[in-house]
């Protein structure tokens, strides 16, 4: 009889205890996260190249980028205070999030390459967002710009910066940013790019493809290492012609530290590219790391939330 009572008591309490622990299990199935992965990169640029990120709706991004002169080589050293006396390019931009996926912007940069005094209109659109459940394994963002130079035309018709008509001043870039965030630490991006320049020098290329590779390694909540590299597909004929005249083209490599301080993102970087715009640093980089022709640079981004809901 005692056994019976014990059994009854046990059986009566068991389901109650079970039911309490089971409450969470009711929702067990929807634990898979389908929401998009955020913060693959911390800002809209990796260093020289674009990241997959766009601005949130109503956010205004004020950006200042600066590239100093060569640290070493013939143009660097102590006489130029390791390049800090010079600036190869400066860009000031306002970019705005029209929707969470679409960003538009205007910029002015000094320009470095064939042209200077560059005015840029840009658009960026998040086509696909990587999701936590890997249903969408990568993010894809489209980037395009159109750039016009307002510099004075060269008097020499053979110069690339001799402008017979307004359209000679123009160039454009179209780019795909294919990105993936691997865990919390590592983000990578592949950037198939196309640069069109309306007017170029003899044996230069009006249309050029390039492949960019960028990455971010986050080693604390607010500090990350960033790098990007662009391989330009310049044809052999063009390379040989320019090399015979003493000009060698190089691919751009940027390495930097990214520091985020709530609203501001600072990039301190080293890059061999002298220009900031894709339209120039992809086809017109003629300086190389191996000759000390790399420079300090920084990108500063300050974001303002204007929109709200």
């Amino acid at each position: 009889m005692l056994h019976l009572r014990l059994l009854t008591a046990l059986l009566l309490t068991a389901p109650a205890a079970m039911a309490q622990d089971d409450l969470g299990a009711i929702f067990g199935k929807d634990s898979v996260r389908r929401d998009p992965v955020t913060s693959t990169f911390k800002s809209t640029r990796i260093i020289n190249g674009q990241s997959n990120e766009t601005l949130a709706r109503g956010d205004l991004d004020f950006r200042v980028a600066h590239r100093f002169g060569d640290i070493g080589g013939s143009g660097g050293g102590s006489s130029t205070f390791f390049g800090l006396d010079n600036s190869t390019d400066i860009r000031i931009a306002f970019e705005y999030g029209i929707t969470d996926r679409l960003t538009a912007g205007l910029s002015r940069s000094k320009g470095n390459g064939n042209f200077s005094q560059m005015w840029e209109v840009l658009g960026k659109f998040k086509l696909l967002q990587q999701t936590h459940d890997n249903r969408v394994p990568v993010g894809i963002t489209l980037f395009a710009n159109a750039v016009v130079s307002s510099m004075k035309s060269s008097p020499d018709q053979a110069d690339p910066n001799y402008f017979a008509k307004f359209s000679d001043r123009g160039s454009a870039v179209a780019q795909l940013v294919i990105s993936r965030k691997f865990g919390e630490m590592v983000s990578l991006a592949l950037l198939p790019s196309f640069v069109h320049r309306n007017r170029v020098g003899f044996k230069d290329m009006n249309n050029m493809f390039a492949m960019g590779l960028g990455g971010r390694l986050r080693f604390s909540k607010r500090v990350a290492l960033v790098a990007d590299y662009f391989y330009s597909f310049r044809d052999e004929e063009s390379k040989d012609y320019y090399e015979s005249r003493g000009t060698k083209f190089y691919n751009s490599l940027g390495v930097g530290v990214e520091i985020e301080t709530g609203g501001h993102v600072f990039h301190l970087n080293f890059t061999n590219a002298t220009a900031i715009l894709e339209n120039q640093f992809i086809p017109e980089t003629v300086s190389t790391w191996t000759h000390g022709q790399f420079r300090w640079g920084f990108n500063i981004s300050r974001r303002f939330s204007l929109g709200g809901r």
Partner: peptide
Amino acid sequence: AINPATRAIYFKVPITSFQFKKKLMQE
């Protein structure tokens, strides 16, 4: 979920589901 018989109560919320007015703040 709540079980009126055992008085057990349970809540769970995805952190990313919190919506802020300023998206940068949400980030």
